[in-house]
Amino acid sequence: MGSASRRMAARPGVLAVIAALVVGVSVLWPWKSGAAPAAPITGNATHFDALGAPYGGCGPPQDVLDAPDFVALNVYNTPGDYSFYPRPIPPSQAAKIGLWDNGRNCGRFVQVTIGDYCTGVNDGAPGQPFCRNGSWVTDGYAGAQLTMVVADSCGDSNAWCRDDPGHLDLSTASLNRFVKNGVPVGDMNPAHWNNRRVSWS
């Protein structure tokens, strides 16, 4: 039995409770799920170092995730509105639900493809355009891919999490593991990152 399997075996009660909560939320909310569509979605990508302590927005601690490469999806779909709303977002405010989908997309795997690089300012400042004073250019990292698991939620009051419905927040450690032509890119982050565009499905 591998180390990950041993860790999971040591916490059967915790994992059972998490599973019950996820299933309960999925079954009991009285409106149709807005699950992420199969067609590729395009957005800006940021990165974060680790799931929040003791766990991320989806519940399981980082050491029991199904994959080492993980992402956060947007909690809200509120372009231009940086206010905070109840979580889970109630049916009366369903239009504000982002692709995290009140947690229903937790545990799903997404295939992420690297896109264009920004030559300008791409800092996610509220109310400001992405890639200010620059342009989007294609370079040698474009097309690199990685399969990642949804493990967290992005609800911060910045342009990434609010103005860009297709935004992904990626694990920092995963950035240089993206693969192109069968080889990890190795050095995309930090010098060639600048919150690139990505597509994902």
Rank of each mutant, 00 (worst) to 15 (best):
D139H: 09
A10F: 10
N102L: 03
Y117W: 10
C106P: 04
N105E: 11
D163Q: 04
L146V: 05
G155F: 04
T147Y: 09
S171K: 13
G166M: 01
C161E: 01
S199K: 14
V149G: 02
V112M: 04
L99S: 05
D49M: 12
N44M: 10
V23W: 12
D164W: 01
L170C: 06
V22H: 14
S33T: 14
G103S: 11
L99W: 08
T113R: 03
R6F: 09
H192W: 13
P60I: 05
F84A: 14
P79S: 11
G166A: 03
S201E: 14
W29C: 08
G140F: 08
D187W: 11
V71N: 01
G155R: 04
N189I: 07
L65H: 02
L146P: 00
I114W: 02
D63K: 07
P129D: 04
G13E: 12
N77Y: 06
Q62W: 08
S3C: 11
R6C: 05
V25C: 07
S153K: 14
V17T: 13
S26R: 15
V183L: 08
L168Y: 01
A4G: 07
M8Y: 07
A125T: 15
H47T: 10
L15C: 04
V23T: 12
N102R: 12
R6D: 06
R108Y: 07
D63G: 05
Q145S: 14
N189S: 13
V23L: 12
R177W: 05
Q62L: 06
F48H: 06
G34S: 12
G166V: 02
P88I: 09
R87T: 14
G98F: 00
I41L: 15
G2Q: 09
P126K: 04
P40M: 11
S153A: 15
P40T: 10
P40C: 09
V183K: 13
N105P: 06
D66V: 12
Q145Y: 04
V17C: 09
P40I: 09
D139M: 08
G52L: 08
P86R: 06
A4C: 09
